[in-house]
Design a protein around this nucleic acid. Structure first.
Lengths: 247, 247
DNA sequence: AATCGCGCCTAACATGGGTTAGTGTGGCTC
DNA sequence: GAGCCACACTAACCCATGTTAGGCGCGATT
């Protein structure tokens, strides 16, 4: 076991390396984290508002969102998460979840006990700093979405989101071109962007007609990155990636 | 000097106590932080997008906001900050600011060197945890605003914001009833809530007509807290206050 | 191969909130 | 005390987006 790193732990390490430089002992410590693996189906809640979890949930495969249900049965999605993300890192400090974490497609995750994570952050300040950094980037993404929903048009918001997902996938080395799966229904896009399903549909068609994107099923192709970036007023600075992506 | 605590440091300690329990040595350490005081005028930027500050900015007096200017000259305000808040705590981990911090009214702040804060968090893990917690609460507020701008009506958003500010002021013991200053123009409210100035005005009048609030100048009185809370779909859970406020 | 359900798509209509273009007023400056 | 400026407020009009109500196609189930 020692010396080798499972693919599960590799996911986590690769993600951490997008936000911080890790030494070998730090990587080894991450690789030694205990994990309880779990497969999950579509539309499952991994963590629920009001819960006080004792484990954190590392995404290994799938596409995850954080969301909250509002008074009138509406839903707001706050963020999407990709493999390597720990979606509920915050509950290390805030015991009660103020929102839920849900799966949009079937996938796999690993539950890591808080105790193990606390021990890790106590022993390796650099890892604590990286987690802290991760949470701050999380917050930066919320701010960017807030700016979008508050002040950008529907066209800008959708273009922006597509740029963001593509940039993050590239930084995780899960893709290396402008082709990827966006396994999200138009209704879910609407819940993320504060739009109705109907309007999401209208706008997507506009973007296709304008030649900025194409899509077959959930597979999405960005045909004209510069124009899409411009249409979305997208500047990746807020993602605070170590190596500037884009192109 | 030893044994006494300046009112500047007191502000910070009182704020920290709303999010964590502090021991005497921890309080003493906070009270010993070096501070460079500065008065500022209305509409000043305390920190600007793109900056890489070497100090954090503790608010002592005034009303501060964090904001970003978008491509088309529009502005989105992300949060308001009250005395005791460190508005740019995040730059301890993310060196480049991805947004600005601006004063809405004249006030006073204290700049604290990053080095002193790092030393403090190294020596006192509980303080590091409290900072971490503060940042997470910050993010929780962003999420709540995102939910508002994305899915709530203008009336709900405005009522919600008024409830939030009042609740936070109470938790800081800056007020103890439902009367407070909201030193913010209607245009600024609009920038925070994703609304036009005209519409903010319309809605405020509606709330007054409905007997939920009154206001003379910037002084605002919540006349009917339960109804306002309901109108705003306000649940203070997301503020993660140690002692549940509200009423 | 019929049925079901879900997600994409469309059309017609409704409306919340934006835009533009002001008026009114109180506090400040000179 | 005249002038100015910032801000609250108003009115008329407009449009981006929401709502309602479906149709269509495809994969899964039987």
């Amino acid at each position: 076991m020692a010396g080798s790193t499972s693919s599960e732990h590799g996911r986590l390490i690769r993600k951490m390396e997008t936000i911080a430089v890790l030494t070998e002992p730090e990587k080894a410590a991450l690789a030694g984290l205990p994990m309880r693996l779990k497969d999950f189906a579509e539309d499952t809640d991994l963590v629920r508002e009001g819960d006080t979890p004792q484990e954190c949930c590392l995404i290994l495969e799938g596409f995850i969102c954080r969301y909250k249900l509002l008074g009138q049965g509406q839903r707001q999605i706050f963020s999407f998460h990709l493999p390597g993300d720990i979606a509920d890192l915050q509950c290390l400090q805030l015991s009660v979840m103020d929102h839920s974490v849900g799966a949009l497609v079937p996938g796999r995750c690993a539950y890591i006990p808080h105790t193990a994570l606390r021990e890790l952050t106590d022993r390796f300040p650099a890892i604590a700093a990286a987690f802290w950094r991760d949470i701050l980037i999380d917050a930066a993404i919320f701010r960017e979405w807030l700016a979008g929903v508050g002040r950008r048009t529907a066209h800008q918001r959708i273009a922006h989101l597509i740029c963001e997902v593509c940039t993050r996938l590239k930084s995780l080395k899960l893709i290396d071109d402008h082709v990827f799966d966006l396994p999200v229904t138009q209704a879910e896009l609407g819940d993320a962007l504060g739009l109705s399903t109907v309007h999401v549909n209208r706008v997507l068609q506009d973007l296709r007609r304008a030649g900025l994107i194409t899509s077959k099923g959930r597979r999405l192709v960005i045909e004209d990155w510069p124009k899409l970036q411009e249409a979305g007023d997208f500047d990746p600075a807020y993602l605070h990636l170590r190596a500037p992506e884009g192109r």
